[in-house]
Computed example of a mutant assay.
Amino acid sequence: MLIGFDHLILAVNNLGQVDADFQRAGFSITQRMDAGKGPSENRLIVFEDGSYIEILFLADPEYRKTHRLAPLLAAGDGWGDYSLHSDALDSDKARLDAAGIPSNRPADYTKSLADGRPWTVALLQAGRGTGRVELPFIAADLTPRNIRIPDDNIRHANTAKGIVGLSIVTDDLPGLVPAMDAIFGTDGAEALSDSPDIRRGRRWNFNGRFVDIVEPVAGSSELNAHLQQRGPSIYEVFVKASRPSGLLDLAATHGARIRLI
Rank of each mutant, 00 (worst) to 15 (best):
E222N: 09
S51N: 10
R209K: 14
H156S: 06
A88S: 05
P196N: 02
L69S: 07
I258N: 12
G80K: 12
N146G: 11
N42F: 01
V18K: 09
F137G: 07
S221N: 03
G219C: 14
S103M: 06
F5D: 10
R200I: 04
L248S: 07
A107R: 13
V46P: 01
I234H: 05
R209A: 13
L56R: 07
D77I: 07
Y82V: 08
L123R: 15
R105S: 15
P71S: 02
L56W: 12
L166I: 11
R43I: 05
G100T: 06
E48A: 12
S245M: 12
S86P: 00
L135S: 04
A251Y: 03
P102Q: 06
S220E: 13
V211I: 15
L72H: 13
T130L: 06
A218C: 03
A241I: 02
K65S: 00
P196H: 05
G208D: 11
D141L: 07
S86W: 02
S40I: 04
L44G: 02
G100C: 14
D141T: 09
A94H: 10
A75H: 09
P39L: 03
R64E: 13
I138K: 00
M1S: 12
T120W: 05
P196T: 00
A241C: 03
N13V: 00
G38Q: 13
Q31H: 07
W204Y: 14
V211H: 05
D87A: 00
L142K: 15
D194Q: 14
N224S: 14
A70L: 00
L176T: 07
N13C: 07
I149F: 02
T143W: 13
E134I: 08
A191W: 05
V239Q: 02
L223W: 09
A139T: 12
E215L: 06
L69P: 15
L84D: 03
R68H: 15
G201L: 11
R155A: 15
L176A: 10
Q23A: 10
D172S: 14
S83W: 02
G50F: 05
A59I: 04
R209Y: 08
T30P: 01
R105A: 15
M180H: 12
R202K: 09
D60A: 02
S40F: 08
T110E: 13
A122L: 02
I213C: 13
G78K: 09
E54G: 00
Y235D: 15
D212Q: 10
I198E: 00
A11C: 06
L173N: 10
E190L: 14
P196W: 00
A107T: 10
